[in-house]
Design a protein around this nucleic acid. Structure first.
Length: 791
DNA sequence: GGACGGTGACTCCCA
DNA sequence: GTCACCGTCC
């Protein structure tokens, strides 16, 4: 493969530059003492605890520049790992800027996955068992391929795919791979998962991957670790190569990544891990906060350097965030500080429902536009972000912004290379490059329709097995032996001939691969398929295909492109227009915005109920860290809000303000009075009346609920104490006799027994019964439980 | 092969 | 309520 050359190791920094190191290094200027310490502590294990906005990327990249300038290592001897391609790109850029030239090399700065691929390609033959091993040309399956494969295996065991969903199995296997559990070392108890089929299907899946000469994302890490463990000589070779190791976002590493790093760092222990335990929000994806918490134990004698000076947010914002995160146990602990002006307190506001919340935020943003907030100065739309916990929250904002004509963009969602048309096109390229890629064959043999349905495919699979060949070859045989019906046969003949022709073209290095790609898509009828399609998204898909072909220009050949796409194709968030950004809290990690809105702070939504149910205190703490991440995205103004009612699964549910609101330090919070609920504000009151129609009881109950919660009361009390200028006397709303129930009440049902009310919609109650479970019942059929204590 | 209806999901999503 | 996916029917 093209990746085997080692030449990059020798393209170091010119000697003349290295000599400069004796003189004061300009790139060190302007670092604060902690950053400087982190840059200069080059040898031995170092944990750089870098709080939000403390300039960790700067410290990290300067450290690399320093290593190079001092001549401690050549670019090829530094291993620098990130999680995302974006982070890797950013680091490359900044190192180049520091050194005032393009850094040739730094071939080992990349994501865990891309570096693992490079390592594995060199030792592919050592992966596998006697019967099968990988070849250096192995392909990398994405999630979609993975699930399709598992589906096949589940069906092959004659299991019902309804009861044994492939998605779930994929999840399970991913989890195992994250913890470096191969079929061989899977604990018996674990193997029994998936109704006893887990271990068996896992082994079958791994075997299948080997025969396909394929790996999935999880394998990349796991295979590396198993390789290092089984072949000490190979490990030694890599240990010697990587003299210095740097790791970004260490708090996000999973067990496999941890083992990977440990093995590589074992000898010289020159490992520098950068991270922030308070920003660990990927536990559900296998990340272990424990890795960072344990660092000093794992690497005895490690230096811990804290970056605590924050360059992003105002003291008010930092204080609010710090107060909140202090509620977590078992932190390494940091005290963020800043020299910035105090700024505005974090604002808190409650709304009637999610629509009112979206309306209010829309109005606020328009007010910013009108220059209404002089203290902030002019605020551009691109400086504003709305960070939500769950993607379904976005909808209310999209609807609202659409109606008031406020430009916005949603960040996240399906990524470029996950779109069907891109994946189809990629499958064509894959098959052209490697005719034995059966997965690619299956994906496109009937796209566009060629009359090759399930039955024809089965015939082909039978032939493939019989002759011990791939599906494409089987198809060729089927054509020769006329094993299929007329029309299908003719189509299949064209298809096979086409792939053969393009394959030959791909091998011809003189031909343009960009033109070839176009030819493949056109001649196969794929482009025509979308042109004929009259659905509204067809033009967009054709655009995407054009974009894909254009992206090809940057590569030498199709093969290089495929390699790239499997690992390095980012989402296309290129637009820089004046738009408000809407994204999830997870998506916002690492970003910053002058003005941030944090809606939906309600118990159940945030902290998320499922996170708490499934992971208990651990889950709650991760949610709290997520809240911390959210607040610390804001540079100048953060506004937290919650709604008393929210539509969930089509039903209105009332909810309580998030417990995190209680945990915010009062002196850094400004409680805003929601218009309409307090002291008039007729515009909102009208909206209130509208929302009210027909749902009286529900509204009353919810109202009593939200504004009777301890957290809200406390907030109001604080607001009074401080004589906040925005404060007005609340109009107390008592629950009327007709509103017999509140969320949280204990009730009794003749058939289901006792339970607790979780939601109220008109005369229908959603009740969590102690023994009968979650049920929806008419209010008329339940009575307050005997021992009900009003709360 | 395409249109339709039933069914289940529905916290976050890197590579 | 809404979307995606699957199976069924013509």
């Amino acid at each position: 493969m093209q990746l085997l050359d080692d030449s990059d190791d020798f393209e170091g920094v010119p000697l003349s530059r290295r000599a400069m190191a004796a003189r004061p290094a300009p790139y060190l200027d302007g670092l604060n003492p902690a950053q400087r310490a982190a840059v200069e502590a080059l040898d031995g294990p170092v944990l750089m605890l870098a709080g939000a906005g403390t300039g960790k990327t700067r410290a990290l990249t300067t450290r690399i520049a320093h290593l190079l300038m001092l001549g401690k290592a050549r670019p090829g001897q530094i291993l620098a790992v990130t999680f995302t391609n974006k982070a890797a790109r950013e680091m490359k850029l900044r190192i180049a800027r520091l050194l005032g030239e393009t850094v040739e090399g730094m071939p080992w700065l990349g994501t865990f996955h891309s570096i693992s691929v490079k390592i594995l390609r060199r030792h592919a033959e050592l992966i596998g068992h006697d019967a099968f091993h990988l070849k250096p040309s192995f392909i990398i399956l994405d999630t979609d391929d993975q699930i399709r494969l598992m589906k096949q295996l589940i069906l092959a065991e004659n299991l019902d795919e309804k009861r044994w969903p492939a998605r779930q199995l994929a999840h399970l296997i991913d989890g195992w791979k994250n913890r470096c559990l191969s079929p061989g070392n899977l604990p018996r108890g674990e193997a029994a998962a998936f109704d006893g089929w887990g271990g068996r299907l896992y082994a079958a899946y791994q075997d299948r991957l080997l025969t396909l000469n394929a790996v999935d994302f999880g394998d990349l890490l796991m295979h590396c670790v198993l390789l290092f463990q089984a072949h000490p000589d190979v490990l030694r070779q890599w240990q010697e190569r990587f003299r210095y190791i740097l790791v970004d976002e260490y708090q996000d590493t999973n067990v496999a990544q941890y083992m990977w790093l440990r093995l590589l760092a074992q000898g010289h222990r020159n490992i520098c891990c950068v991270g922030d335990d308070d920003q660990s929000i990927y536990g559900w994806r296998g990340a272990e906060v424990g890795n960072i918490l344990r660092f000093e134990k794992d690497f005895p004698g490690a230096q811990v350097i804290r970056l605590e000076q924050n360059y992003r947010s105002t003291p008010q914002i930092l204080a609010a965030a710090s107060g909140l995160i202090a509620a977590n146990q078992g932190r390494l602990g940091k005290t963020l500080w800043t020299e910035a002006e105090p700024g505005e307190r974090v604002r808190l506001i409650g709304h009637w429902d999610s629509e009112a919340e979206a309306r209010w935020i829309g109005d606020e943003i328009e007010a910013f536009q009108g220059g209404h907030r002089a203290a902030l100065g002019p605020v551009g739309l691109d400086q504003i972000a709305i960070l939500v916990r769950a993607s379904h929250q976005m909808r209310a904002f999209e609807d609202r912004f659409m109606t008031i004509g406020l430009p916005y963009r949603v960040i996240g969602g399906p990524r470029f290379y996950e779109r069907a048309e891109i994946r189809d096109a990629m499958a064509y390229f894959r098959l052209v490059v490697s005719p034995a890629d059966d997965l690619a064959f299956e994906r496109i043999v009937n796209t566009p329709k060629r009359g090759i349905g399930d039955k024809a495919l089965q015939t082909l699979q039978g032939l493939a097995r019989q002759h011990g060949v791939g599906l494409l070859e089987a198809a060729r045989i089927a054509v020769e032996e006329r094993q299929l019906g007329g029309r299908s046969l003719a189509n299949l003949r064209d298809f096979v001939a086409g792939i053969g022709r393009w394959h030959a073209d791909a091998l011809d290095s003189r031909a343009s691969h960009v033109e070839l790609a176009e030819r493949i898509l056109d001649d196969s009828g794929y482009t025509a398929m979308w042109q004929a399609e009259k659905s509204p998204d067809a033009p967009g898909r054709l655009e995407n295909l054009k974009e894909l072909v254009k992206a090809l220009e940057e590569f030498d050949n199709l093969q290089g492109f495929l390699e790239h796409v499997a690992l390095v194709m980012d989402r296309d968030d290129s637009e820089a227009a004046e738009q408000v950004s809407i994204m999830t809290l997870h998506g916002a990690k690492g970003l910053e915005f002058p003005v941030v809105f944090l809606p939906g702070w309600e118990d159940g939504l945030f902290p998320n109920q499922r996170a708490m149910d499934e992971s208990g205190t651990k889950g709650l703490e991760e949610e709290r860290r997520l809240a911390y991440v959210g607040i610390t995205r804001a540079e100048r103004l953060a506004t937290i809000s919650f709604a008393g009612n929210r539509r969930l699964y089509g039903q209105w549910q009332s909810s309580m303000p998030s417990r995190f609101i209680d945990e915010l330090p009062a002196e850094h919070v400004e409680v805003l009075t929601p218009p309409g609920l307090y002291g008039g504000g007729y515009g909102a009151a009208m909206a209130f009346a509208g929302a009210n129609a027909g749902t009286e009881m529900h509204d009353r109950a919810a109202r009593a609920d939200v504004y009777n919660s301890p957290g809200w009361k406390r907030m109001q009390a604080r607001a009074t104490e401080r004589k906040s200028p925005v404060h007005r006397t609340p109009v107390t709303i008592d629950a009327e006799p007709a509103a017999r129930f509140n969320v949280g009440d204990r009730v009794n049902h003749a058939k289901f027994g006792e339970g607790q009310i979780m939601g109220i919609a008109e005369d229908t109650l959603t009740v969590q019964f102690d023994s009968a479970g979650f049920k929806t019942v008419k209010a008329g059929y339940v009575h307050p439980a005997a021992d009900d204590v009003p709360f």
